[in-house]
């Protein structure tokens, strides 16, 4: 039997993490964690519920960032006026699992599970979000680009005594747009086979900055760094033509039933995410 904790302060939560370390399973929405417990994949000494912690359901704008509390659910994100301008994120959330899961599943949990085909995580990755990790020793801020252990899926760089308390997304500037494209085998409740997230800025009719997230194509989420560099300075049309014809080299497909399929559709998916990002970047100008 495991001990069960429901701390009421962050300090208490962080204290428990300090005591148990990796033997403590943090449960947020529980949509992944509870499944692991039921299937016997994990047998933690202790379980700690965190969704009730103060500020964990807050979404606020401050200091150039959109702050998302560590317990904010997908549904709360979808209903937030602060999140609404992030079109790509809204679209990713709309495709994530089912309405029932979206009511309890959390953005922080989606990041910490570290699945390679996580919709919300992929779009946050494209948005260049960072996470705040707190422990008894203090807090550190880690860019999502550095958050995943790139050697394997389902692993992050979080220490056993750390708690993800907040997600920070740089606010959208004028001329910035976001776009998302996912391909799956059916229209709902299906893990994506290809996920592309894009955040870009248009200035004087050309792309001035760009971030591309590639999901479900590697063991972890990765940036399409070559593409990001190549499209800067291009007009929207030119960029779309470029991505449509240029394989994102960071996508290193492992051999599976879907390899050939992915090869045949990834460029089109990148192009679609770009089209959407350009469209709402135009709207923001």
């Amino acid at each position: 039997m495991s001990e069960y904790y429901r701390p009421s302060t962050k300090a208490e939560a962080v204290g428990l993490l300090g005591k148990y370390g990796k033997d403590l399973l943090v449960v947020n929405g529980g949509t992944d964690a509870v499944l692991s417990i039921v299937e016997g994949k994990v047998q933690p000494k202790a379980i700690m519920q965190v969704s009730q912690l103060p500020d964990f359901h807050r979404i606020w704008r401050d200091g150039g960032f959109l702050h998302i509390g560590g317990g904010v659910t997908f549904r709360e994100l979808m209903e937030s006026e602060e999140v609404a301008p992030y079109h790509g994120l809204m679209e990713a959330l709309g495709h994530l699992a089912s309405p029932a899961i979206r009511v309890i599943g959390t953005a922080a949990g989606n990041l910490c599970t570290a699945a390679p085909a996580a919709d919300c995580a992929a779009m946050l990755y494209a948005l260049k979000a960072s996470v705040v990790l707190e422990s008894a020793k203090g807090e550190r801020v880690v860019d999502l680009a550095d958050f995943y252990d790139t050697a394997s899926s389902y692993k992050t760089v979080m220490e056993g005594d750390e708690l993800l308390t907040e997600i920070r997304v740089p606010v959208l500037d004028k001329g910035e747009g976001t776009g998302y494209c996912r391909l799956s085998r059916r229209k709902a409740q299906d893990i994506a086979k290809v996920i592309i997230g894009v955040r870009l800025a248009l200035s004087n009719g050309v792309i001035s900055s760009c971030s591309v997230a590639l999901g479900a194509l590697n063991a972890t989420l990765v940036h399409g760094t070559e593409t990001e560099k190549a499209v800067v300075g291009m007009s929207g049309d030119k960029a779309i033509e470029y991505v449509r014809n240029s394989w994102p080299v960071e996508a290193r497909l492992h051999k599976s039933y879907f390899t050939e399929y992915k090869k045949s559709v990834v460029c089109a998916a990148v192009a679609r995410a770009f089209e959407k990002a350009l469209e709402n970047a135009g709207g923001n100008v």
Binding site: L183, R185, K193, Y257, F258, E260, Y261, S264, V265
Partner: peptide, 11 residues
């Protein structure tokens, strides 16, 4: 006729 088979057939 999954997306995999459709793309294969088109190709």
């Amino acid at each position: 006729m999954t997306p995999v088979r459709v793309m294969e057939a088109i190709k």
